[in-house]
Design a protein around this nucleic acid. Sequence first.
DNA 1: CAAAAAATACGCAAAAAGTGGTATTTTTTT
DNA 2: AAAAAAATACCACTTTTTGCGTATTTTTTG
Lengths: 206, 206
Amino acid sequence: MKIKVSIVEDEPLIKDGIVNLLNSSEGFICEHTYSNAEDAILDIPNKKIDVVLMDIHLPGMSGIECVEKLKPKCPKTQFVMFTSFEETENVFQSLKVGAAGYLTKTSQSNKILDAIVDVYNGGSPMSSHIARKVVDSFASKNQNTNLQKLTKREQEILDYLSKGYRYKEISNSLFLSTDTVRTHIRNIYEKLQVNSRVEALNKVRN
Amino acid sequence: MKIKVSIVEDEPLIKDGIVNLLNSSEGFICEHTYSNAEDAILDIPNKKIDVVLMDIHLPGMSGIECVEKLKPKCPKTQFVMFTSFEETENVFQSLKVGAAGYLTKTSQSNKILDAIVDVYNGGSPMSSHIARKVVDSFASKNQNTNLQKLTKREQEILDYLSKGYRYKEISNSLFLSTDTVRTHIRNIYEKLQVNSRVEALNKVRN
DNA sequence: CAAAAAATACGCAAAAAGTGGTATTTTTTT
DNA sequence: AAAAAAATACCACTTTTTGCGTATTTTTTG
């Protein structure tokens, strides 16, 4: 089984280079290529492509937008961004909209093939620097200063609020009177400077 | 400038091995070690450690919890998890609570030193497989099937709900009657099978 | 063009949430 | 031991949300 690869790249030299590399390597096949995002969006959903190499800088629609549109239509297809330099912010954005990894255009042939096999097997090829950005973006949400203002009990009750429980349901769950629950909630709102559940949750869930 | 490293590991053989490796390598120094999470929590905040190697499986409190407690107190210190095998779920959890990367205990000496330098320089050493898990966890939030059930207008109104707006505030913002807003919200709840704002938001915000 | 979907709107009633005041007991901190 | 903070509880009142029914106009789709 060969890995079916497509490439979206406007520079013919680079595109042809990659196509040659793929078709002359064992285990890869590249039959469809596109020189802009618009064409790719129209055609890729009709082919069953395993891996798409996507240039970030394209004429017209960017490669990032292109992934954003394509990924929902082809959830099984893996997208690997193809960048000139290590453009941290762009790569980061790409991962957010559904790309699985990225490659720099200066990579050596074997690195490129490795990366394609890697995404195909469920990995995310990326530098450790980008990896850190990604890790940070979902780790930071822990030490929430607003949450720390609340007492244990208040945090517990807020947790029930976040599940959509009613006062009565909370009081039953915690064996308290509803009035006590109301008091706690009033204090929570006071501390967080809000006047409703949703606002309170927004304050603690960044 | 040497990189100051600490290690939290209950197995003396492994711990001593690492300490030896570090102190006999150029650019590293390891003066403080701990054989359990509790001791580490008490002492590490007092030292200015650059990188902590943290075993996941410790007697008593786990290494994951240990990072969770320590990271807020020492935001500049980088934590690298130290695992026996590639335990995907545990590593993933560790990253969530503040670790920057991980190492397997079977790594070769030079890989270990490389990883320490890497985190110290702002990278996140990890396999491409773990990287994918991390990427997925923050990318998935896009094609939310529940959100897709809603019409444009309904999504727009849900967006206001998510900010804690009242019916009146929403209708004023959109130049609608509050009754129309109510109807939309009723339909949103119907489609999402919920009976309150918070529940609706939970359905679309995974 | 006909049918379906989406967006608009009104009314009534009940349930839930939010506001304000007050107070006692338990736990923690100084 | 005294003071402060946290957890508990009750009452009265207002505002907001939710539930259910119905209906017209506009837009989209087959």
